[in-house]
Write a protein that binds this DNA or RNA. Structure first.
Length: 564
RNA sequence: UGACCAAUGGUGUAAUGGUAGCACUGCAGUUUUUGGUACUGCCUGUCUAGGUUCGAAUCCUGGUUGGUCAACCA
């Protein structure tokens, strides 16, 4: 309730620059005062958190202004695209919590785009160029000086028509000719120097198969696709800003609906990379387990890592939208997932690095069941029973033989509380030949079981534990950041982002978990008390659960240790 | 040595000519049977030089810095 109020308030008072533009348009009655956005991925890779920003923006704006959002696959390059990606993209968008109004493909518009090209040729606004790729590139010139017009630029309409139709029929080999828009070879904007509209590509397309051997370029397809769908606001990232004059040129010269292209700054996050090409390389070179490796910034990777759709949506909302280049601190993403999981995740106890603890005055044949709270943040999640006995596992880091004064946990002569159980006192330690502590001997105070009056006694700390003879084991995958520098792309001479990979980004341990733990629903989120948030990985089996660490709990103590 | 875009604490993002606010991070404290959560407090900011104005983060001009553009990729 409180959240809804503040959200509403926020939505009303704080507009990002795109919403400001839209509200202005709405006020002026532009596009019949309607909003229709689209999310236009190319199906050549998996979606990542940067796409999530765009998805939340496009779908979010439509929701806010009671409009629609299309899903359109920008599939104009058959050699890079695949249905595998189409399916994955759709799954990711839905998992994030959005449903598109209708599903489209740029390839659905190939015939219309072709007819429009004919129209431009007839108007003398497009021509077939026989120059080689190298010649075209050379003639285009450089940004600081004008280009040179192609010798084929002034062919007759009839010849252009004939040539273009024969291009479609497949009479010419790949690369032999292109169709170009006749604009201005001297434009300071490189994209206006007679941009290529069509290239010959004798390649099978994932949807149109072999129906076409000429394919439109992005610039010739995108704006018109938007126009066909009646898109009102075509939101894209900053690098397309210089394409906008061309986007406008095609809409104007074709005399079709003219959506407004608006550019925003893409998302960057430190300690990771955010380009499809680089993510593909990580997968292909097997630096990670796959696109859905929990260390990847892909949406499927974050999902497998235990991130929730809500946490990602809230992240997208929190980072805002603007035109300035930005690098978001990874700690904000972590904050968003902790914030969400703190409310939702059931608590359980697990010991990742076990140390034996023996309660010398607890009868060896005795065992009892104690009540544990499933989620202190949500009483309706109820309670459970956990077994207690003489020999326990505790976390090795919860014991220290020679402890500094700010160490609150177990140390010889000190009392601590075993969560949900008794207050114990450390009496002595047992060591092996090399002097390593192999067990801690304690005594317990039977009057201090949780709930008893004596249990209110103040102790320095409370630690988690598991009954040694009852505990089950599980594989736990501890992930750390994939790269060990804030800007992996920022490499010195001769190095690449691969050289910045963190060799210790995955650590696998065998841990003890509560014996009653039977849930094997992939993706269920848990909090291992005092450790972090974990979720069940798809590699789990009924006899061997596998957990992924989503994110560690904030931990003042270990932070202090690292700094010291 | 071109065009376009941008510049607010460590990181993001507001303030739409009128008190520079919010979130994250960091630091300190309160509460706590999680060194978690919650709560409180603190640190830290308008790139620069001029101009317009009673008043400028905001408008104008110059500079500086950063980004984008020279695929038959999107």
């Amino acid at each position: 309730m409180g959240n809804e109020n503040t959200d509403e308030k926020k939505n009303k008072t704080i507009l990002n620059f795109i919403e400001s533009i839209i509200e202005e348009n709405l006020k002026n009655g532009k596009n019949d005062a309607s909003v229709h956005t689209r999310f236009p991925p190319e199906p050549n890779g998996y979606l990542h958190i940067g796409h999530a920003k765009s998805i939340c923006l496009n779908f979010g704006i439509a929701q806010k202004y009671k409009g629609k959002t299309n899903l359109r696959f920008d599939d104009t390059n058959p050699v890079k695209e695949d249905v595998e990606y189409v399916d994955a993209i759709k799954e990711d968008i839905q998992w994030l919590g959005f449903q598109w109004h209708s599903e489209h493909y740029a390839s659905d518009y190939f015939e219309q785009l072709y007819q429009w090209a004919i129209q431009l040729i007839k108007e003398g606004k497009a021509y077939v160029d026989d120059l080689t790729q190298e010649e075209i590139s050379k003639n285009r010139g450089v940004p600081t000086s004008p280009g040179i017009e192609s010798p084929y630029r002034n062919r007759s309409v009839e010849e252009n028509l004939d040539l273009f139709q024969r291009m479609r029929k497949g009479e010419f080999p790949d690369g032999s000719r292109v169709l170009r828009a006749k604009i201005d070879m001297a434009s300071p904007n490189m994209h206006m120097r007679d941009p290529i509209m069509y290239r010959i590509l004798h390649a099978s397309h994932h949807r149109t198969a072999n129906a076409w051997c000429i394919y439109p370029m992005y610039d010739y397809a995108h704006g018109q696709s938007d126009a066909i769908e009646g898109i009102t606001h075509s939101i894209c990232t900053l690098e397309f800003e210089v394409h906008r004059p061309l986007y406008d040129w095609f809409c104007e010269n074709l005399k079709i609906h003219h959506p407004q292209q608006i550019e925003f700054a893409r998302l960057n996050i430190n300690y990771t990379v955010m380009s499809k090409r680089k993510l593909l390389q990580l997968v292909q070179e097997k630096h990670v387990m796959g696109w859905d490796d929990p260390r990847m910034p892909t949406i499927c990777g974050l999902r497998r890592r235990g991130y929730t759709p809500e946490s990602i949506r809230n992240f997208a909302e929190t980072i805002g939208v603007a035109k300035r280049e930005n690098v978001i601190d990874i700690s904000l993403l972590e904050f968003c997932v902790r914030e969400d999981l703190n409310k939702k995740a059931l608590r359980t106890m697990a010991v990742l690095e076990p140390l034996k603890l023996i309660i010398d005055n607890y009868p060896s044949n005795k065992e009892e069941y104690l009540t544990a709270v499933n989620n202190p943040e949500n009483p309706t999640d109820g309670v459970r029973s956990i077994p207690f006995s003489r020999e326990l596992w505790i976390e090795r880091s919860d014991f220290m033989e020679d402890a500094p004064k700010d160490f609150f946990r177990l140390t010889p002569g000190r009392e601590v509380r075993l969560k949900y159980a008794y207050i114990i006192k450390c009496e002595n330690v047992e060591k092996d030949d090399k002097g390593n502590v192999v067990a801690v001997h304690c005594t317990y105070d039977p009057e201090t079981r949780s709930g008893m009056p004596q249990s209110n006694r103040k102790v320095k700390s409370t630690i988690h534990w598991l009954s040694a003879k009852h505990a089950k084991t599980a594989e736990v995958r501890l992930f750390d950041r994939l790269f060990n520098v804030p800007e992996p792309d920022d490499c010195c001479e001769g190095k690449t982002f691969i050289d910045n990979l963190n060799p210790n980004s995955l650590q696998i341990v065998t841990a003890f978990i509560e014996p009653e733990f039977i849930n094997t629903n992939t993706l269920s989120n848990y909090q291992f008390e005092r450790i972090g948030y974990f979720c069940i990985d798809k590699d789990s089996t009924s006899d061997k659960p596998v957990f992924n660490r989503t994110v560690a709990l904030k931990d003042m103590w270990t932070k202090k240790q690292i700094l010291a």
